[in-house]
Amino acid sequence: MIKLKVPISEEEIRKLKVGDEVLLSGIIVTARDQAHKLMVEKKPDFIRPYLKESVIYHCGPIVKKNPDGSWSFVSAGPTTSIREEPYEADVICEYNVRGIIGKGGMREKTLEALQRCGAVYFHAIGGAGALIAKSVKRVVDVFKLEEFGTPEAFWVIEVEDLPLVVTMDSHGNSLHEKILKESEKKAKELIGIQD
């Protein structure tokens, strides 16, 4: 198990390989569909300091507002990453992001950006919302809450020992591509069709 702390240098991230299990700590940012669209189309600066050498988490959390006005994460597993495929490569390189957390993996365009700009894709455990919320120690800030709503807002959160698996690294390797190819071969064999 590798312990990793934000900010993450390019050298550190390039050491990671597909299959590595990681415990991530530090300040990261949740962003999904509307946030990605905004980052590509408007390139807002308010989120820049939080993203530099940090990590984006594809997550639409359940969040509770406490009586003192602060926020707590109740359940916060990953959402499907592939929806951000059109945007992610630009976001990674524009904002110097070192990692993307999500589920299901991403495709060629993102894989190429991971290689070019020095970042990895971390897979979180889909559905493990209660457990992951326990790793969220505090909510540092939130942006676009009114406009985007709870699941789509940028939540800036501090996490401790968030359990992750590297499934796409900065050397062009993707576990998702490997499993896809192997399962395709087996599926064809079971169905009885030739290449």
Partner: peptide, 18 residues
């Protein structure tokens, strides 16, 4: 997953945020 299932039940929180 199994740890998460137990935790959600004990703390009465959604096992998944979706």
């Amino acid at each position: 997953i199994l740890t998460n299932v137990k935790l959600a039940r004990e703390n009465s929180v959604p096992m998944c945020q979706d």
